[in-house]
Design a protein around this nucleic acid. Structure first.
Length: 743
DNA sequence: GAGCACTGC
């Protein structure tokens, strides 16, 4: 089918300026509709089946594992209720778990948290009556630590499986193992010898890595006179995915059957440019104005890569709006990205006033995390800022990369939620065809320390042999195991150490932070470390909008510590407790809730992100619970931060950096040249030696969240890692080189 | 002298 330009192009390069004003160039972009065939390919995901609901129930009865492709998260899940004890449904995000649970409870006419409930971090809305439990995928993983056979569940549904979050991917392998184990247990009862006869079955052999846990659980059960484990029914697993790739799932789940369900999506007309656009920001700007002037009413959603780009675009668009012809509809610009305080985020959900068209400038947050009503047009430059991980040097980087075909489909789908829509792709059909089919799963893109610690805690010792659907590289796994070993979480045999490793795995924290928490009690500063790990886990405590850059920096001065960012964060929390909660932080949810309104005001005057601070308070409360549960005492170092800085050194000794003769910094463990990130309070202060928490690569390698230390502490507090000579040498490799040349 | 997409326990 021939492409059809949506508007005539300007020919001969002749453009006239028709008014006395310097009107911006009325450059136009030509678009063609993508061929019918490729459009069909994208929408084929909605293969209809007759009376889907009834059929689905039949299929679940017949199959232990089922793959459902198409519309997800629907009330149909309620039908699975009758299959037994409890049905668990996982979602990748907290909000989704809450909203779906709420909707299903309404549909069933029951009170939320009774028969239908949800369970997410910091919030458990379930009861003993709960039969249908919605939860985040990470929450189910946590439950597996306490109950390796997931005995409470008869069915587990993994919703939005196509998103392939790191937790969903771990659950895939875990559930496969649990299924095999439960089959075996129901076959052979509690006789371990009978179990050995099945060793030839490969799946069962893999699953028998759970043996230790399961046996101790069996023993515990029989001690309690509980023979429930004998009667365990097979676990049914349902994978719900919105992508076409049923085959990949099916192959992984031993040839499980896939069924297709009709979607509820309206058609979206896909338009592509004829030529590649060098400046996608400019192209997005032009297209936005073009759509505004030529298309029917309906809001526009523009996908951009980050805060800075959104702020730039907002400025450019506002400038151009002034030149819109008299009498035309007006434009309301609404930015949204994750770091934007919620009060400002809410603006995108308000309908545009009459006579206005809303233009939403969004990051990936609008791709899946939130659904904005009223969108009819999507403008997609085809790029995303994505995290990548280099296991060799252990550095994460954030770079702008092309999206995948699946992401492109997800983005265009945002235009067809309420009616037919249009999607303008700022790239050619050829460029589209060259995109990767699907985004690389998260598990292949990040640091695996947490995941490996969890697997070890689940009794899975052979992590290199774990049955991943997409296996991370051997190098990435080995690197994370080395890291865990260095932290003391693993023994020489590679088993979880007791008590250190066991305690670390229990904390809902990065392994490094969990270790720091445990180390801090011997340095008499566990209160401060508790605050630090909570604030570091929460991220972006400070909010710095570009147009109020100076004010924001000035506001930060008040909390700033000459020793570095960790103490600065402690100062923020102490100031909050003093000024908002009247000096008494009771660390209880109800207590914090009382100060909700005051918190908001305090945060906005101090340029602090309220959502992040609240999150830090939540994490602190939760971690405090674990610390106390382990019988560890929480002590404060007061204003004597030397203990605390020494504790940071003992905990984060792997991340130290030294100033070189040329003023640049060198990371001791990897030998890389790094620079202090501009967001640090030590930026420009040139400390001799620091420890840091993050190493990120953007334009250069930056270290973030740092504290000034005495370099001699390294050899003293981490002798297993540094000798005094190492530390002395580290400060002058460049000088040595210069000396060599000069002689 | 300059920057952090998005989730989750």
């Amino acid at each position: 089918m021939p492409s059809m330009p949506i508007s005539p192009s300007l020919e001969n390069g002749k453009r006239k300026s028709s008014s006395a004003f310097q009107v911006p160039e009325p450059k136009r972009l030509k678009y063609g509709e993508a061929s019918r065939r490729s459009e069909l390919l994208e929408q084929r995901r909605s293969l209809p089946i007759a009376s889907a609901s009834k059929k689905l129930v039949e299929e679940v009865q017949k199959n232990d594992t089922l793959i459902v492709i198409g519309e997800t998260g629907s009330g149909k899940t309620t039908r699975y209720c009758k299959f037994g004890s409890m049905v668990g449904i996982t979602q990748p995000r907290r909000v989704a778990a809450i909203t779906v649970a709420t909707r299903v409870a309404e549909e069933m006419g029951v009170q939320l948290s009774k028969e239908v409930g949800y369970s997410i971090r910091f919030e458990d809305a379930t009861s003993s009556q709960t039969k249908l439990k919605f939860m985040t995928d990470g929450m189910l993983l946590r439950e597996a630590l306490l109950d390796p056979l997931l005995q409470k569940y008869s069915v587990i549904i993994l919703d939005e499986a196509h998103e392939r979050t790191i937790h969903t991917d771990v659950l895939f392998g875990l559930l496969k193992g649990v299924q095999a184990r439960r089959r075996e247990v129901s076959k052979v009862g509690t006789d371990p010898e009978a179990g050995d006869q099945n060793k030839q079955d490969k799946t069962v052999a893999k699953a028998s890595e759970h043996q230790t846990q399961i046996q101790s659980q069996m023993e515990a059960n029989s001690r309690n006179g509980n023979s429930k484990i004998k009667q365990l029914k097979p676990l049914k697993v349902i994978i719900m995915s919105a992508t076409l790739d049923a085959q990949g799932f099916s192959e992984y789940f031993n040839g499980a059957k896939a069924v297709y369900v009709q979607g509820r999506q309206y058609p979206v007309q896909i338009m592509n440019t004829y030529t590649a656009e060098a400046d996608y920001l400019d192209a997005a700007l032009i297209t936005t104005l073009q759509v505004h002037q030529e298309e029917l009413p309906g809001d526009i959603l523009v996908f951009l890569t980050g805060q800075e780009e959104i702020e730039n675009m907002e400025r450019l668009l506002t400038e151009r709006i002034a030149f819109l012809p008299e009498g035309s509809r007006k434009i309301l610009v609404a930015p949204i990205y994750a770091a934007l305080p919620s009060e400002q985020q809410m603006r995108v959900f308000e309908p545009a006033p009459s006579g206005y068209r809303k233009v939403i400038l969004a990051t990936n947050i609008a791709e899946t995390s939130l659904t904005i009503p009223g969108i009819r047009y999507v403008i997609d430059p085809g790029l995303v800022k994505a995290k990548a991980y280099n296991p060799r040097i252990g550095v994460e980087s954030l770079a702008v990369v092309p999206i995948s075909k699946a992401q492109a489909a997800q983005r265009s789908g945002r235009a067809g939620r309420e009616g037919p829509g249009k999607c303008f792709r700022l790239y050619t059909v050829e460029a589209f065809n060259q995109l990767q089919d699907a985004t690389v799963p998260e598990i292949k893109r990040c640091n695996l320390a947490s995941v490996m610690l969890q697997l070890k805690a689940l009794g899975i010792d052979d992590v290199l042999g774990f049955d991943f659907m997409d296996k991370p590289s051997r190098a990435a796994i080995v690197k994370s195991l080395e890291h865990l070993y260095t932290l003391g979480a693993l023994t020489d045999e590679g088993k979880l150490s007791d008590p250190l490793g066991v305690q670390m795995a229990r904390f809902p924290l990065e392994p490094l932070y969990a270790k720091a928490m445990l180390v801090s009690s011997s340095f008499k500063c566990s209160e401060e470390m508790l605050t630090t790990v909570a604030m570091l886990s929460a991220e972006s405590i400070f909010f710095t909008p570009r147009e109020k850059f100076k004010e924001a920096n000035a506001a930060r001065q008040r909390f700033s510590s000459p020793e570095g960012d960790h103490i600065t964060l402690i100062n923020v929390l102490r100031a909050y407790t003093q000024e908002v909660e009247g000096g008494q932080s009771l660390d209880s949810e109800a207590h914090h809730k009382k100060f909700e309104k005051k918190l908001r005001g305090w945060c906005s005057t101090n340029f602090i992100n309220g959502r992040s601070l609240r999150r830090a308070l939540d994490i602190r409360r939760q971690v405090r619970g674990y610390v106390e549960g382990m019988g560890l005492e929480l002590v404060s170092c007061g204003d004597d931060f030397t203990h605390f800085r020494r504790c940071l050194t003992a905990s984060f000794f792997l991340n130290s950096a030294h100033k070189q003769a040329d003023g640049k910094y060198r990371a001791l463990s990897s030998g890389q040249t790094v620079a202090i990130h501009p967001s640090s309070v030590l930026f420009g202060k040139k400390p001799d030696c620091v420890i840091f928490n993050e190493l990120v690569r953007t334009n250069q390698q930056y270290i973030r969240s740092l504290t000034r230390i005495d370099s001699l502490w390294l050899a003293e507090l981490a002798p297993q890692y540094y000798s005094t000579r190492d530390v002395e040498d580290a400060a002058r490799p460049t000088t040595q080189q210069e000396d060599f040349h000069s002689h």
